[in-house]
Design a protein around this nucleic acid. Structure first.
Lengths: 210, 210
DNA sequence: AGAATAGTGTCTCTAAGACAGTATGAT
DNA sequence: ATCATACTGTCTTAGAGACACTATTCT
């Protein structure tokens, strides 16, 4: 699991110059119809990707988070499949990268309170993965059940029991078999695709905690 | 279930003059340490109550929601026990009242996009009531299991099965018996109090949907 | 005794977890 | 045949739901 970071400009008067930060920026009152449109625009400027999933995490506002004074930030997270990530640098950011999420943080020291914002976003994602199909938004077009389970395991940072996982997923109408198999040095695996690339499926029960 | 409303001032230049609205206002950069402090302050101005539970629902921002132009509002909901509500009028609001929530709205036509904000808050509350002890924050100091169940039923707007409800609640360490009973024209009921008036208990499973 | 509400016994059902077993491909 | 991974059978367990039953107070 990785998170997109952008490098802050190095100009002396910029707060947290040269630090890595979550991608973001100010609302453009003329171009942004609403907050979500602003988030989509900012993301597209960095990745050129139309995200299949975007969720508002919350809003942080206080006097300390930005040295320039009282400010608020509304945090969204997007889920982007690994095969759809062509990065673009430019704009106010001198560099862009994907950073691996370890636990619920990243090795780099982030600008502002972004470590806290990332932590909240990862926690939100994790808790929803317990009872939804959110990881499906991270899959390429066709994938095997084992691959989907692996993505669940990566986002949750723990292993899942294979039979229970498969029964659970196949009991919903999330997936659809495609008449192809993933070949390897072993028994080939059935390939699946999402029945609906927009819809989130909610499971009846959450996975067992811990 | 009721929601606190305040009446907008009647001055001609005020948007939505004389309409009922959710209580709120602008951040005071000098007095409000952060967004939550602002919410607590605004609530206290109207009810003079320190809320036992406050949760951020989300942030709405666009150019249309306020005729004065682009604006954002961060919505919080508080849960306040019915026995702790001494209302105060004053400030910018000429009147204050509790309005009954029917479905996920209120009979009055609300100012701005507050009907939508209320809908979102009620939906958030409902969905969390399915798997948490949030309604416990709406209870007076001592209460019976039947009374707690009734509050669950009111917030969820559906009946629950008595035995399942009691088993579920008593299986956690949410409650503590007190050596008193609620007397009536029938068998007296055991009284309980919360073991911890701050903590939210999360149940292993959500209640069955519908 | 009867009404009313409190509280329990117990069966069913669903879905998660555990884990051993079988299946099917490549080498 | 062996290895590796895919996939299944089946038992256990937790907890929700249904619903009839018993318990305890008042009038």
């Amino acid at each position: 699991m990785q998170v997109l970071l952008v490098k802050r400009p190095s100009a002396r008067n910029e707060p947290f110059a040269d630090h890595w930060a979550l991608p973001g920026g100010f609302i453009d009152l003329d171009r942004d119809a609403d907050l979500e449109a602003c988030a989509i625009r900012k993301l597209k400027e960095k990745t050129n990707v139309a995200t299949p999933y975007l969720e508002q995490v919350g809003t942080w506002g206080n006097a300390e988070r930005d040295p320039r004074g009282w400010s608020t930030t509304t945090v969204y997270f997007a889920l982007i499949a690994a095969d759809a990530t062509a990065l673009l640098a430019g704009g106010n950011a001198t560099d862009v990268k994907w950073a691996t999420v370890e636990g619920n943080r990243v090795r780099d020291k982030l600008a502002f309170d972004h470590t806290e914002l990332l932590r909240a976003a990862v926690n939100r994602l994790r808790s929803k993965v317990e009872y939804t199909s959110l990881p499906a938004f991270l899959m390429p077009n066709e994938f095997t059940l084992t691959e989907l389970q692996r993505v669940y395991e990566i986002t949750l940072d723990r292993t899942l029991e294979k039979k229970a996982f498969r029964t659970r997923v196949l009991a919903t109408d999330l997936l659809e078999e495609v008449p192809r198999r993933r070949e390897g040095a072993n028994r080939p695996a059935q390939l699946f695709k999402l029945k609906n690339r927009k819809r989130t499926v909610f499971f009846a029960r959450a996975l067992q905690r811990e």
